[in-house]
Amino acid sequence: MQLTGNTIFITGGTSGIGLGLAKAFHALGNKVIIAGRRKALLRQISAEYPGIDGVELDISEAADIARVAKDLISDYPTLNVLINNAGIMPFDDASTPVEDAASRSILDTNLLGPIRMTSELVEHLKGQPRSTIIYNTSVLAYVPIATNAVYSASKAALHSYALSQRFMLRATNVTVQEIAPPWVDTDLVKKSGDPRAMPLDAFIEETMRGLGTEEHEVFVESIRAMRDNPGLGEHQLVHDFNQYIADNPIPV
Rank of each mutant, 00 (worst) to 15 (best):
P249L: 10
S152L: 07
P129V: 05
E99Q: 11
V220F: 00
L232S: 14
T109V: 10
L107C: 03
E61M: 12
I134H: 04
W183T: 04
T147Q: 13
T109W: 02
H216K: 15
V238H: 10
D228N: 14
M226L: 15
L169F: 14
F9M: 12
L111F: 13
L125F: 10
Q236E: 12
A22D: 04
L111I: 07
T4E: 09
E214Q: 13
Q177Y: 07
G127M: 08
M89A: 15
G18R: 00
K191G: 08
N148Q: 13
L200Y: 10
I45R: 00
R67G: 05
A86S: 06
R224S: 14
Y76C: 08
T96I: 01
V143D: 02
R224P: 04
P77K: 02
S138A: 05
Q177N: 05
H239N: 03
L188I: 12
L41H: 07
R224A: 15
A162F: 01
I59S: 13
I65Q: 00
F203V: 02
G20H: 03
A141R: 08
D53F: 05
S46M: 03
T7R: 09
L107I: 15
D93Q: 09
I134M: 09
G210Y: 12
E221D: 15
L19A: 03
G20P: 02
P199Q: 13
L41S: 04
G233D: 05
M198K: 12
I59K: 01
P199R: 14
A141N: 08
N136V: 15
N148K: 10
V55C: 04
T14N: 01
Q44S: 15
P181Q: 08
N136K: 04
H235D: 05
P97A: 10
G5R: 03
